[in-house]
Design a protein around this nucleic acid. Structure first.
Lengths: 133, 133
DNA sequence: GGGGACAGGGAAAAATTATTCCCTGTCCCC
DNA sequence: GGGGACAGGGAATAATTTTTCCCTGTCCCC
């Protein structure tokens, strides 16, 4: 386990929320479980461009944060399922809203990124007002 | 500017949203501007534990993403203000909700992190059901 | 002139996160 | 026995992000 050298500021609710959902593939994993893809191997298949190891690490973090929990069946071969805790469930509507927002604005954002050139931001207020409209 | 080596998956709305708000201090900066702390130097004072350089980089990114825009006054000494674009404004309610969620659950999450020990996740379904309730 | 506030950025280092490679077991099927 | 599926982790490396240090310029005030 990696030992942090710079302390985090976790008194702010926003920081906590972002810590939980902010990992690179976290939200994708959460979305899998939401769609009832709950077994590690199934998630690995679903996210086949991501290394299984990476997914496992994220799963462990989600578990540490109390967003999901693991159900281990006594079966052989071993069978494991991840499910949402109550707190994890409460996150789903927020993620859905974020996703809607992203879908509604991704063209705008990607266009902005492409068009952005250092210095192109030099406008006077009147010009900016025009641009913003 | 850093040249990415691994392409991002930005077709998913959630990924886009997290890209925009996911930077380490992004949401704090957005919160400053929301509270009408709009000038770079004022933001630096407000977030005085963060290096000004870092804040500038995040501001530039928010600008590139079209979340905020810069108003440059012709004054001397130079005066600059950051303001939200319409898209930036539309993000605020979502952030407020995330913050509420984080505040409501941060004790739970921090407790989980502290109590988590590798292997403590080995429960049978019945025990998990009890824990989750 | 010296010092401070203003806005901003280059270069390098450090910290953090993501990724790859490869290894541990068990069981089933051919 | 060999090969595959299952769940999982150690160690090292690469990629990315964050941070520090220091420098550019203008203007005002003492």
């Amino acid at each position: 386990m990696y030992q942090r050298k710079i302390p985090e500021l976790l008194d702010c609710g926003l920081a906590v929320a972002l810590k939980v959902i902010g990992g690179k593939w976290k939200s994708w994993i959460i979305d899998c479980i939401r769609r009832d893809i709950r077994r590690p191997s199934a998630i690995h298949r679903e996210m086949d461009v991501i290394a299984p190891r990476v997914i496992n690490l994220h799963l462990k973090e989600l578990e540490e944060h109390g967003i999901i929990y693991k159900v281990i069946f006594a079966d052989v071969p071993p069978r494991v399922e991840y499910r949402f805790t109550a707190v994890g469930e409460s996150l789903l509507p927020l993620l859905a809203q974020l996703e809607d927002w992203g879908n509604a604005n991704k063209e705008y954002i990607n266009r902005n990124v492409e068009e952005y050139a250092p210095g192109s931001c030099q406008f006077l207020p009147e010009q900016q007002a025009a641009k913003a409209s």
